[in-house]
């Protein structure tokens, strides 16, 4: 559960870890039954209505102004979004 919290970037309290572990177990018990009918010959459906080749012409549209871009920023400086120190390495 703690690992899931890290992956999901949610700092879970001890209480939450306890509650969520119980709930997740119960939910997973219930939903695991999908594998009963999901046999290898059944194809997966990722989009309910099949479409393909939906493209956009390579034409420049209207961009956001810098004011619009930064309008909701919790913190900004020099026309950029500002964040606290980054741990670790660049991806």
């Amino acid at each position: 559960m703690r690992h899931l919290g890290v992956l999901a970037r949610i700092k879970l309290t001890d209480d939450e870890v306890t509650t969520l572990t119980g709930q997740l177990d119960a939910i997973v018990d219930n939903i695991a039954k999908v594998s009963e009918v999901a046999t290898p010959e059944v194809p997966a459906t990722s989009h309910p209505i099949p479409l393909s080749n939906v493209f956009r012409p390579d034409e420049v549209g209207q961009t956001l102004t810098l004011e619009q871009t930064l309008h909701n920023a919790p913190d900004a400086a020099d026309g950029r979004f500002r964040v606290t120190a980054i741990l670790g390495e660049e991806q």
Binding site: R56, D58, E59, V60, G61, Q62, T63, L64, L66, T69, L70, D78, G79, R80, F81
Partner: peptide, 28 residues
């Protein structure tokens, strides 16, 4: 390309738009 992979904002990897001011080639 003139625009980005998934938005119609100008592509800074195209010479025409290279060197733009920060956060000025932005679509939602």
């Amino acid at each position: 390309t003139r625009t980005k992979m998934f938005s119609d904002a100008p592509n800074p990897a195209n010479d025409e738009f290279h060197g733009a001011e920060p956060n000025t080639l932005i679509a939602p």
